[in-house]
Simulated scan of single mutants.
Amino acid sequence: MLTRGVLLGDRYRLGERVATGGMGAVWRGTDVLLEREVAVKVLLPSLVADPEFTARFRAEARMLAALRHPGVVPVHDVGQAALGDGSQVDYLVMEYVEGEPLSARVRAVGRLDPATTMSVLAQAADALHTAHLAGIVHRDVKPGNLLVKADGSVVLVDFGIARSRDMAGLTAANMVLGTASYMSPEQATGQPVSAATDIYALGAVAYFCLAGQPPFHGDNPLAVALRHAQEDPAALPADTPPAVAAVVARALAKRPEDRFGSAAELAAAAADARDATLASIPVSARPPWALAAPAPSAVPASVPPIAAASVPPVAAASAPQIAAASAPQVAA
């Protein structure tokens, strides 16, 4: 049984459990060898019992460990350990990211201003592009998996643990891989996923930031997922700049080929929309992170950190999950 103080692999001592979801639990822990804080993701026993799943899990962990990007949570190690009761657990060790989920940030202020939203979108898309180049599709991009660090930078966590370019949305265990409120039409209908799947999810995240709620609601997660495939979302708030609305609309295109050609293309478009928005408003109305920036025409191409601006609050809806246990997905 996993409890505080358990030592995995003679190296990782578990502290407090910080998240639990459909694939397992994440613990705040300590690497006793290097004396550093880590996040340890421990898979559910039912998943560990599937040899094919664990093989994919380890292969994906190796690929993620090779990624180098400030917006992607670093993976340190992967392993298997025997517990005192004789059971086996598979675990993934990552950097512990001290940050606030974007979902909590939006709930606290109602919604984000357009320039800040585009900054978030550009940072996340740039991080995803690095993963896509390595053949990895996240599959569960959502506000809860975007952490805002103390310096304002955005880090993408909780990558899908199976290489998914050739996977459909449903596994053999009938578990939809993703979160209903941010699920692409192809995921909702069980079609193969691709980099375009993550681009759609980022569009839904941007919609959430701007409107204070996800694009669709429903009586249950399945109904929400199907609305992504069959309906268009309501219009964004009237104060959304046309350039910003255009970026979100293209990212949310129903057909993958109608979206941005890559996450890098989305990042560039979001950065352009951010800069155009900043250039159109007086200094006194700019979001906090932009106040100390140079004149809009000299705003660098790098993506600025995010901060919440003063905007009218909008009630934020929670994101229904589709998972075997109907539980939140695990995040580092």
Score class of each variant (00 low, 15 high):
residue 287 P to F: 04
residue 271 A to M: 13
residue 239 D to T: 12
residue 198 D to P: 08
residue 208 F to M: 12
residue 242 P to N: 12
residue 275 D to Y: 00
residue 200 Y to I: 04
residue 202 L to T: 00
residue 280 S to A: 15
residue 268 A to I: 11
residue 274 R to L: 15
residue 221 P to Q: 10
residue 223 A to W: 03
residue 266 L to M: 12
residue 228 H to C: 07
residue 248 V to F: 07
residue 239 D to I: 06
residue 196 A to I: 01
residue 246 A to Q: 15
residue 289 W to C: 08
residue 235 A to Y: 06
residue 289 W to E: 12
residue 289 W to H: 13
residue 217 H to S: 15
residue 248 V to C: 08
residue 236 L to E: 00
residue 289 W to F: 13
residue 241 P to Q: 11
residue 201 A to Q: 02
residue 250 R to C: 08
residue 288 P to A: 08
residue 240 T to K: 07
residue 253 A to C: 11
residue 205 V to A: 04
residue 240 T to A: 09
residue 196 A to K: 03
residue 284 S to M: 12
residue 223 A to R: 13
residue 193 V to K: 01
residue 279 A to W: 00
residue 257 E to K: 11
residue 224 V to K: 01
residue 196 A to Q: 04
residue 234 A to T: 13
residue 207 Y to Q: 03
residue 233 P to T: 10
residue 213 Q to C: 12
residue 238 A to K: 12
residue 250 R to H: 11
residue 280 S to H: 10
residue 287 P to G: 09
residue 194 S to N: 08
residue 258 D to V: 04
residue 287 P to H: 07
residue 266 L to N: 00
residue 268 A to L: 13
residue 251 A to T: 03
residue 205 V to E: 00
residue 214 P to S: 07
residue 261 G to T: 10
residue 285 A to T: 11
residue 276 A to T: 13
residue 192 P to N: 11
residue 222 L to A: 14
residue 285 A to E: 14
residue 248 V to R: 00
residue 206 A to F: 07
residue 256 P to R: 07
residue 238 A to H: 12
residue 251 A to L: 09
residue 212 G to Q: 01
residue 288 P to E: 01
residue 242 P to C: 11
residue 233 P to M: 10
residue 192 P to M: 09
residue 247 V to W: 01
residue 205 V to P: 03
residue 196 A to T: 01
residue 290 A to P: 01
residue 243 A to R: 11
residue 253 A to Y: 10
residue 291 L to P: 00
residue 226 L to D: 02
residue 255 R to T: 12
residue 267 A to D: 02
residue 287 P to R: 06
residue 207 Y to H: 10
residue 239 D to A: 14
residue 263 A to N: 04
residue 291 L to R: 14
residue 211 A to S: 11
residue 193 V to T: 13
residue 194 S to H: 08
residue 191 Q to C: 09
residue 256 P to F: 09
residue 255 R to G: 10
residue 236 L to C: 09
residue 236 L to K: 05
residue 251 A to G: 09
residue 224 V to M: 05
residue 239 D to K: 12
residue 221 P to H: 14
residue 244 V to P: 06
residue 203 G to M: 03
residue 259 R to A: 01
residue 287 P to K: 03
residue 249 A to V: 06
residue 192 P to F: 11
residue 230 Q to C: 13
residue 209 C to K: 01
residue 279 A to L: 07
residue 259 R to I: 07
residue 258 D to F: 06
residue 232 D to M: 15
residue 286 R to N: 10
residue 254 K to D: 03
residue 248 V to W: 00
residue 199 I to K: 03
residue 264 A to I: 01
residue 266 L to V: 02
residue 280 S to W: 02
residue 257 E to C: 07
residue 277 T to R: 08
residue 204 A to Q: 02
residue 287 P to L: 05
residue 278 L to Q: 09
residue 277 T to C: 13
residue 200 Y to F: 15
residue 207 Y to N: 03
residue 196 A to F: 04
residue 216 F to P: 07
residue 194 S to C: 08
residue 220 N to F: 11
residue 262 S to E: 03
residue 238 A to M: 10
residue 271 A to F: 02
residue 255 R to M: 13
residue 233 P to I: 09
residue 196 A to H: 05
residue 191 Q to W: 13
residue 193 V to W: 02
residue 223 A to C: 12
residue 254 K to H: 14
residue 245 A to N: 11
residue 221 P to D: 09
residue 291 L to S: 12
residue 239 D to N: 14
residue 237 P to N: 10
residue 197 T to R: 02
residue 210 L to V: 07
residue 288 P to H: 04
residue 231 E to Q: 15
residue 257 E to W: 06
